[in-house]
Each structure stands twice: as C-alpha cells, then as structure tokens.
Amino acid sequence: MRILDTASAIAQPSPDKLQVTAHQQYNPPESLSPAQVAPSPLDQFRTWFTSVQGVVAEPESMFLCTATASGIPSARIVLFKQLDRRGFVFYTNYTSRKSHELLENPHAAISFYWREVHKQVRIVGRVEKVSREESEEYYRSRPVGSQLGEIQARLEEVKERFGEKDVPLPEFWGGWRVVPDEVEFWLGKPSRLHDRVRYLRIEGSPDDAPQWKIERLAP
C-alpha cells in the first residue's frame, strides 16, 4: 500500500481549541464492490481477518458500543475471540458495565479498524450470551495465568490452591455473541472517496443461515 504525501497535521487557533487540518491519504491497490464480496458477511470477514494476520498489530482489537435501556451509549475496546456461524464472540465479566448494559438493552455495535491496510468493518446486531459449555471450552484453552487473572482479588490464595492445575470457570465470567443484522466493509481511498459495501439481513431469515441484501454505499 502506498501512503500519499498528505501528512496528518494539527492547528491550535486558540488556547482552548485543537483542530485537525489534514490527514494521511491512502491508495490501496485493491477495490471493493458488491460483485467482489462473498455472499455472507461472515465469510467476507473471515477472508479479511485472515489476510491481515502478521500485517496489522493486534487485529483482534475491536470497538464495542453498548447502551443503557434509556439509550445512553458507552464504548470501549475489547478483544474479539471467535467467529462462528451465528456471529462475533468476545468474553468478559458478567458483572461489568458492558454486561449490565447488554442485559438491559440486548443490542450492540462493534467495529474493527486496521490502519495498516486502511480497512474497517462495522457490525450492528442483537446480542446473546454464549452457552456455559462454549465459555468453558474457551476458558480451558487459556493459559493458567489468564485463568487466575479473572479472580485477581484472591490471586495469591488461589495460586497456592491450584498451582499449575486448571482453575474452575468463575460463575461471573463468560461470552457474549453479537448476531449481526448489518455489516459494512470499508476500504479507504484517496480524497475520501472510500469503497463501502453493506450487508443487510433479510427479515425473517434464520440466525443460523441468514440471507443477505448486499449494496454499495456512497463514500
């Protein structure tokens, strides 16, 4: 990928104001259109995610946006852990703010931004807890140190108790799955004339085998 000469720049026209006046532009060799993408956004994501391994630093980092029942939003970065036939899975403490908000308002938006290749994926959907069995399976795949980290307040006591043995899955910890209704793939282009392709779930199609409308969006 060739980065064009326009560099990021800032100005401070007054002591209380900071203004971005320019941004680096990119000229990727590829393009993106409805005719070029997979029939399923999950398959298209799998292709993009696989392609950025070793190129993008921490490609599994994703922005997660949740909201309270009254619509007050909050956002943070979490780690994407699994893609299955239903959607995108991450793991967290079920007593956290994000989990409380997902229980109140079972909808979420997530996004990935891979700066090195100037690609972005945006997902909007409903959320569901993954099964206890799925959480257990993922939890068992983690190093013992990571398992112990979920019970930090009693860490030394638990280290003595379990040593290098597997640590039981805490009741308050597990996975959430975002089941997408909308997925947008974005490819940066010069002069902000970006390529954008959106998938919209066709109403009534099943979560395990959804049908999708694919369309190009204006830059």
Rank of each mutant, 00 (worst) to 15 (best):
L4W: 14
D5V: 09
T6N: 10
S8R: 10
A9P: 08
I10P: 08
A11H: 08
A11F: 08
Q12W: 10
S14D: 14
D16Q: 11
D16V: 07
Q19L: 15
A22C: 07
H23C: 14
Q24R: 14
N27G: 04
N27F: 07
P28A: 01
P29K: 13
S31M: 10
L32P: 14
L32K: 11
P34V: 14
Q36R: 15
A38K: 11
A38W: 07
S40L: 07
L42W: 05
D43V: 15
Q44F: 03
W48H: 13
S51P: 14
V52Y: 01
Q53V: 11
V56Y: 03
A57D: 13
M62L: 14
L64V: 09
L64H: 06
C65G: 07
C65R: 00
T66L: 06
A67M: 07
A67G: 09
T68S: 14
G71E: 07
G71V: 05
P73H: 00
A75Q: 08
R76G: 14
I77Y: 15
V78G: 08
K81P: 07
K81D: 01
Q82I: 11
R85M: 08
F88Q: 07
F90V: 11
T95E: 04
K98F: 03
K98H: 05
S99D: 12
H100F: 05
E101F: 01
L103T: 15
P106G: 09
P106E: 00
P106L: 03
A108D: 00
A108G: 00
A108S: 02
A109N: 13
F112I: 13
E116T: 15
H118A: 13
K119E: 01
K119V: 01
K119P: 00
K119L: 05
V121W: 04
I123H: 03
V124Y: 13
V124P: 00
G125E: 02
G125C: 05
R126V: 06
R126P: 06
V127L: 08
E128S: 14
V130L: 00
V130A: 02
S131V: 14
E133C: 09
E134D: 08
S135F: 09
E137A: 14
E137G: 03
Y139E: 06
R142F: 13
P143Q: 06
Q152P: 00
A153D: 12
E156M: 10
V158M: 15
K159G: 05
F162N: 02
G163Q: 11
K165C: 11
V167I: 11
P168W: 01
P168H: 00
L169C: 07
P170H: 05
F172H: 12
G175F: 04
W176A: 02
W176G: 05
R177A: 04
V178I: 13
D181A: 07
D181H: 10
E182W: 02
E182I: 15
W186D: 02
L187T: 09
L187V: 11
L187H: 09
G188F: 01
G188K: 02
P190D: 10
S191R: 15
S191D: 12
H194M: 12
D195M: 10
D195Y: 09
D195C: 10
R196D: 04
V197M: 04
L200Q: 12
E203N: 03
G204R: 15
S205A: 03
D207H: 15
D207Y: 12
D208H: 09
P210R: 08
Q211A: 09
K213R: 07
E215Q: 10
E215A: 09
L217C: 03
L217A: 11
A218M: 06
A218P: 00
P219M: 06
